[in-house]
């Protein structure tokens, strides 16, 4: 304890000194990017690669939700905001650049004879009103409903697209990530689930016994998502107040360029069609 009392003075002085220097922090090549926690992991890897080719540049990515991305850019707390939806009508003061699209595919087992489901049928299955494949033109077997765990962005997108509330869903299996969802459906011919479209397409092409169901007459493919035709998808945007200059402009151009396609697909998103 003597040790403590002797060092107390130093600790207090140190903290005071740090406060004092805090006001004089340099603001050179430093970008702050805040917003959607869906985009944050992608922005982090983009920033990592950008920093590697631009020595001296620091890009700090902060997660906290799309709403915060918008608010921080407006208040000038962030140079760039991350917003995982299209901008709303009252956000006309901001400019958005789409760096990727996030799409969800409804998947069933490959041997399931059901070719397509309507919006109403999917809602009925997920709310427990339809419990048998026979009711939607399939085999006489019960449906295993696979849902995502609470808090997942895929769940949010799914719910908002079908205008469902989380407690209304009657799920038999709750899964965490995409791989787990694909494994569950591939191992159960009666299961229906939804996963990131990039993962589903990749797994189906590798021979995993799953099938992607079309939605609203549009086939579920990354190409359809990239073109913005697939209904169950959303843009992942970087937003900013006015025309940018310098490092911020370079970073957005870099994030939209074809040289980062591997990073976008690596996070199970779809690169936008126009590059």
């Amino acid at each position: 304890m003597q040790f403590l009392s002797r060092n107390l003075f130093f600790v207090v002085t140190l903290v005071a000194a740090l406060f004092a220097t805090g006001c004089a922090r340099e603001s050179g090549e430093h970008l702050v990017v805040t917003g959607s926690s869906t985009i944050a992991p992608l922005a982090t890897v983009l920033a990592e690669r950008f920093e590697a080719t631009h020595p001296g540049v620091k890009i700090d990515v902060q997660a906290g939700g799309s709403a915060r991305g918008v608010a921080d850019v407006r208040q000038g707390l962030a140079n760039i905001g991350m917003v995982s939806r299209a901008l709303k009508a009252d956000e006309g003061d901001l400019l958005a650049d789409t760096i990727a699209r996030d799409g969800i595919a409804i998947i069933v087992h490959r041997d399931n004879p059901v070719a397509a489901l309507t919006r109403e049928q999917i809602i009925a299955i997920y709310t427990g009103q339809v419990r048998d494949w026979k009711a939607v033109g399939g085999a006489d077997a019960p449906i295993t409903v696979v849902n995502k765990a609470e808090g997942r962005s895929t769940l949010e997108l799914f719910l908002s697209h079908f205008k469902l509330e989380a407690p209304a869903i009657r799920a038999d299996v709750v899964i965490g990530d995409n791989q787990q969802g694909i494994k569950t459906v591939a191992g159960n011919p009666q299961a229906i689930g939804y996963v990131s479209i990039g993962t589903a397409e990749y797994e189906a092409s590798r021979g995993t016994p799953i099938r992607l169901l079309p939605l609203g007459g549009v086939e579920a493919s990354t190409a359809a998502v990239a073109a913005g035709r697939f209904p169950l998808s959303r843009p992942l945007n970087l937003v900013h107040r006015s025309e940018l200059s310098g490092i911020a402009r370079d970073f957005i151009a870099f994030a939209r360029s074809a040289e980062v396609n591997d990073l976008v697909t690596g996070q199970y998103f779809v690169p936008p069609a126009v590059r």
Binding site: R25, D60, A63, S153, D177, S196
Partner: peptide
């Protein structure tokens, strides 16, 4: 330095479990 943003373990675990596919 103390002025750098730094992710702590709990935040890292949360992000891996919730926002990163295959991060479990």
């Amino acid at each position: 330095s103390w002025f750098d943003s730094g992710r702590t373990l709990a935040v890292h675990i949360y992000d891996l479990a919730m926002n990163v596919s295959g991060g479990s």
